[in-house]
């Protein structure tokens, strides 16, 4: 271990020791016990490890933890107490999951979309979500869930 870094994760400052190439995903899962972000491909190609860094959807498996300067939000930090984020609620209501392994990455990537585009078109949703893979092929419902969440946000 040759570097101490302090990350701000879900509103809390956390200091850990890392190697220069330790990924943010490893820190989240192994050091901080936040296992909601998943290890999928390990190459930034599947989206299962997506978290928000400075509000931007980021592949944590290919992001060196030592280089992270902005606030990190993981799926564990999305709900407000018992109140689910509109995306979490919409994924439940649409039944947009089978095994659910990709869901946390899907939700975090979609959260990044809705933060910059509150009323995305179906085409914009599909384009934005293109890099998130679902092996169960729940895509139709995932798109429906994101549309539902956008409508719920609008009516709030």
């Amino acid at each position: 271990m040759d570097a101490k870094v302090t990350l701000r994760v879900n509103g809390e400052a956390r200091t850990i020791e890392v190697f220069p190439d330790t990924s943010l995903l490893e820190v989240l899962r192994d050091d901080l016990g936040l296992t909601g972000a998943k290890y999928g491909c390990g190459e930034g190609m599947c989206g299962a490890c997506t978290v928000l860094v400075g509000g931007k959807p980021t592949r944590s498996c290919v992001t060196p933890a030592a280089e992270v300067k902005a606030e990190v939000v993981t799926i564990e930090g999305l709900a407000q107490g018992d109140r689910l984020h509109p995306l979490q609620q919409a994924f439940l209501e649409e039944g947009a999951m089978q095994c659910g392994y990709c869901v946390t990455g899907m939700i975090m990537n979609a959260a990044g979309l809705l933060a910059t585009n509150a009323k995305p078109t179906t085409a914009q949703i599909k384009e934005h979500m293109e890099g998130n893979v679902c092996r169960c092929c729940t895509y139709e419902r995932i798109v429906a869930a994101i549309e539902r969440a956008a409508r719920a946000e609008e009516s709030r």
């Binding site: 296992t35 909601g36 998943k38 799926i75 709900a79 689910l84 979490q88 999951m97 392994y101």
Partner: peptide, 14 residues
Amino acid sequence: GRAIVTGRHAYTSD
């Protein structure tokens, strides 16, 4: 389902 969307569901790798 709620455990899945909140990241609390423990898969084998978790």
